[in-house]
């Protein structure tokens, strides 16, 4: 089982590394955007699936990273490499505040609070268009002076892998254990000596950092920013990715991001029917298969594999 996992992982990694040589520019673009969503989805998965904080502010936190980085470069002229990092810390800072403010809020209260925060942020970005470009769009300088999609590809791939490794370490460490303890029963966790306050805030800070990182990269890759990246349907897309991938699995979230992004691309000609279909898929998944669609399929496949393995022995 472990070997099989490792094998799949190695296969996927080498495929990802070789991909730019097998694809035309347009598809590479689709994959880069899929990586961006994968980073957002996996970090939201850590926040919601593991730590149990169903925040709707994740897209807004990506926007904090994106706008901070873009405005820094435009106004101070520093290199985008530093500004993206500063943007990620800014997002983490906002995450800290949200986490702190939401300590007492759970379930629907938390959802409503984070939706309100996102909407207010979007309205401010729109209203202060003299500074933010508003809906007219903010032209963002590129990350690399050279016009090369492959460069962007390997950058986001690197960021994604590094982030996933860190998140995986968190999930499998004591920290991850505490996250889950807080999720399952805050009061019980507290009586067992888990510092609930600390871990709740920490969950927000860590995941917000990754959201900000994704946003920063996105800004300097797409090179145009509008407040629309915070709209509720964007958050819906991230949620659909995680739910379809499996809400308690980082790998599932990444797979979900890939499947939805590619499906959205393949099914382009169907326009709004795509979203009807994704909405339905999200609802049906939640209702009938709460571990997502990917994980059960994967498990079935590996189980069969094990069986044949056993039989041959």
């Amino acid at each position: 089982m472990k070997n099989l996992n490792r094998l799949i992982l190695m296969g996927l990694l080498s495929a990802a590394a070789l991909l730019p040589f097998a694809m035309d520019g347009y598809w590479l673009h689709i994959i880069i955007i899929a990586y961006y969503y994968a980073l957002l989805a996996s970090s939201w998965c850590l926040l919601a699936g593991y730590a149990g904080q169903f925040s709707f502010a994740h897209a807004a936190l990506a926007a904090v990273g994106a706008y901070t980085s873009a405005l820094l470069v435009l106004n101070t002229g520093i290199s985008p490499v530093y500004s993206i990092i500063i943007g990620s810390f800014a997002a983490a800072g906002v995450g800290l505040v949200i986490g702190f403010l939401c300590l007492r809020l759970q379930g629907p209260y938390l959802a409503l609070f984070t939706i309100a925060y996102s909407e207010i942020f979007r309205i401010v970005l729109n209203a202060e268009y003299r500074y933010t470009g508003g809906n007219f769009g903010l032209n963002v300088p590129p990350l690399f002076a050279r016009e090369s999609r492959i460069l962007y590809y390997y950058t986001i791939l690197g960021i994604l892998i590094l982030s996933l490794v860190v998140m995986h370490k968190i999930v499998t460490s004591r920290l991850g254990l505490f996250f889950r303890a807080v999720r399952e029963d805050e009061d019980a966790a507290a009586t067992l000596g888990v510092n609930v306050v600390k871990y709740k805030i920490l969950a927000f800070v860590i995941t917000s950092f990754f959201a900000g990182l994704a946003g920063g990269f996105y800004a300097h890759y797409v090179r145009i920013l509008t407040p629309n990246i915070i709209q509720l349907p964007q958050m819906g897309l991230i949620i659909a990715m995680v739910v379809i991938g499996g809400i308690e699995s980082l790998a599932g979230a990444v797979a979900g991001a890939f499947i939805l992004q590619l499906a959205a691309e393949y099914l382009r000609d169907y326009e709004e029917l795509r979203w009807v279909f994704f909405g339905l898929l999200l609802v049906i998944t939640l209702r009938f298969s709460q571990n997502g669609l990917i994980y059960p399929i994967y498990k079935r496949l590996t189980k069969k594999n094990e069986k044949t393995h056993a039989e041959s022995e």
Partner: peptide, 24 residues
Amino acid sequence: ERKDEYAILITFGLSIFLQNLALF
């Protein structure tokens, strides 16, 4: 298992579904 969260997500999913269905 997680009732609050299930209810939030499933009604949210329904809203995406119904809104786009109406557009169609």
